[in-house]
Nucleic acid binder design. Structure first.
Length: 249
DNA sequence: CATACGTCCTGCCAGC
DNA sequence: TGCTGGCAGGACGTAT
């Protein structure tokens, strides 16, 4: 292993190396935006890609521009964690530490056990703008700014509307919209705005299917009104002023 | 406790 | 052509 960018590690460098060296990866998982490598001793390597992180198999696709950590694999090959902006993190957790992190995350939107009623109840307890609510990993796991905005457009909800005023019918619509957009995006292997690549170096194909994200000034694909952009919570929100009317109008 | 905002970091692109 | 300001997929710490 080679750590070129120690600031990516959330675990002390010595422990990071010694906990990984010689271990076998028993399985790979995902929880929210965290990639989980379960090791043969029960510890886990947990990777969060942040904005621009990628995991690449060296030699499989494009070369890594900004390698942060290189893992030598047995019997051969190299897995590279690459990240221009270095907002991503890598850490080694034991079962207990992983359980705590897991519990701090909200439900998985694509899980069978995620029911419309649960979303309805959770939303009703908050006064946050619903777009910010969707980005809060403790409330619902794995939803980022692209899919939060896309789901809200499909559900006809203004991104700045307080979560608590949405009410049962639209909460059910949002539940369906989230599952729909996430399922379609996964099938398309993700959205590549600029940097995202899968482990083979391939771009995702969902970009052309975005209806509002990054499309302010263009016509709404549903009604033709001009899409708008606004900023709150330090993040851009994109919406159709006609399909997603502000609360009270 | 819940919510709001600045910050971390680098690169790209529109506009002047 | 070259510079500058704004903006970017996330999440955390601090302030209120």
């Amino acid at each position: 292993m080679e750590v070129l960018r120690p600031d990516l590690l959330r675990t002390d460098f010595e422990a990071f190396q010694s906990r990984l060296r010689g271990r076998r990866v028993e399985r790979l998982g995902r929880r929210g935006k965290n990639l989980v490598f379960v090791l043969d001793d029960g510890w886990r390597l947990v990777v969060n890609l942040g904005m621009t992180g990628r995991l690449l198999l060296a030699g499989a696709g494009e070369p890594s521009d900004h390698p942060g950590v290189r893992f030598g694999l047995e019997p051969g090959g190299t897995l590279v964690y690459d990240d221009v902006r270095r907002f991503g993190t890598l850490e080694i957790l034991d079962e207990e530490a992983w359980a705590r992190k897991d519990e701090a995350l909200g439900p998985e939107p694509l899980s069978r056990t995620f029911r419309p009623g649960a979303l309805e109840d959770a939303l009703s307890a908050s006064r946050m703008p619903v777009r910010s609510w969707l980005l809060d990993q403790g409330k619902i796991a794995g939803v980022g700014n692209i899919y939060a905005n896309e789901a809200l457009h499909r559900a006809g909800i203004h991104p700045a509307e307080p979560a608590g005023t949405i009410g049962p019918p639209r909460a059910r619509a949002l539940h369906g919209a989230l599952r729909e957009v996430l399922t379609e995006a996964v099938e398309a292997r993700g959205t590549t705005l600029r940097d995202y690549r899968d482990a083979r170096g391939e771009s995702g194909d969902f970009g052309p299917r975005l209806r509002v994200y990054g499309r302010d000034g263009s016509p709404c694909p549903r009604c033709g009104h001009t899409l708008r952009r606004t900023v709150f919570g330090n993040r851009s929100a994109f919406f159709c002023p006609s399909c997603q009317p502000p609360v009270g109008t």
